[in-house]
């Protein structure tokens, strides 16, 4: 912090001259890049449409209203499918995630050199690919329908649950483990009676949270043909049947609120 001596008093500045100059230069360059990018984007945007967008939106809302309420009853089956995709997918995903998490956690992995990187790779690759992309691939492999959706949701859930679970395993209290080791328990018993009770709360909250997310994701995978309400949505948007689209959107909101309510209940019971 430089102190400047004037004739009869001292004062100070936050930075010295060099630092001041650097700051100024950074801001200058930043502004320059921003204006350049703004110009580039602007020149490739058709501003006529942007300024007209509120009219378009109002027009769309007008067509959506009033919703075709009768149509709701034909949606019950697809919504049921969507819930099933989410539930079965989450179950499969978490079941596969459990052994992967034990293999990936530093303190439980049987081999740090080989199995741990392998398990981590599975987790990372599952996490890095969105469930819609998984669904796209799977529709091509197993054909369109609920099965593709279930597998897509399951594959995406493996990474999510696996990562959070192995972090929970790494954070356990080693002292409690040591006490069980001291009673003469073998390795497998230490795992079941020392580690499992400690990660059980984390495990339940992780899987409930993932189920909650999967309800939303399951509505989307249908857009690429992997079953559930998304298929219906895709079809009605294709037909420009906006009065039906609005019913579907409402149904999705209802399903999500419902799942939110259920997860809150379960969480309160368990934790």
């Amino acid at each position: 912090m430089p102190i400047i001596k004037q004739k009869d008093y001292k004062t100070w500045k936050k930075f010295d001259r060099k630092r001041d100059l650097q700051n100024w230069l950074c801001w200058f360059l930043g502004t320059l890049i921003f204006s350049f990018c703004f110009g580039l984007i602007s020149s490739k945007t058709i501003w006529f449409y942007v300024f007209d967008s509120h009219n378009e939106a109002l027009d769309l809302l007008g067509r959506m209203f009033p919703p075709e309420t009768n149509y709701f009853f034909t949606l019950i089956k697809p919504i049921w499918d969507t819930l099933n995709i989410a539930t079965i997918g989450t179950t499969i995903g978490t079941l596969i995630a459990i052994p992967l998490a034990f293999l990936s956690a530093n303190n439980t992995t049987p081999s740090k050199k080989f199995l741990r990187p392998l398990a981590l790779f599975c987790i990372v690759s599952s996490r890095s690919i969105n469930s819609v992309i998984w669904a796209l691939l799977l529709v091509a492999v197993v054909g369109p329908g609920v099965l593709a959706g279930i597998i897509a949701i399951g594959l995406r859930s493996i990474g999510f649950c696996g990562k959070l679970l192995y972090e929970a395993i790494e954070e356990i209290d080693e002292n409690q483990i040591e006490a069980i080791e001291a009673t003469g328990a073998n390795k497998a018993q230490i795992m079941t009676f020392g580690i499992v009770p400690q990660i059980l709360p984390a495990f339940t909250s992780i899987s409930i949270y993932r189920w909650d997310i999967n309800i939303r994701e399951a509505t989307v995978v249908g857009l690429v043909g992997a079953g559930g309400i998304g298929i219906e949505l895709d079809a009605q948007i294709g037909d420009l049947a906006w009065a039906k689209v609005s019913v579907i959107l409402l149904a999705i909101v209802v399903a999500v609120v419902f799942s939110e309510w259920i997860t809150a209940k379960i969480r309160r019971c368990i934790i």
């Binding site: 409690q176 006490a179 069980i180 328990a185 073998n186 009770p197 400690q198």
Partner: peptide, 24 residues
Amino acid sequence: MIFQQHQLIERNTVFQNVLTGRLG
């Protein structure tokens, strides 16, 4: 073995904790 910080599985019941003494 008895530890300074008892080192019990805190989430479990007294009964479950005492039973771990039988694991071996």
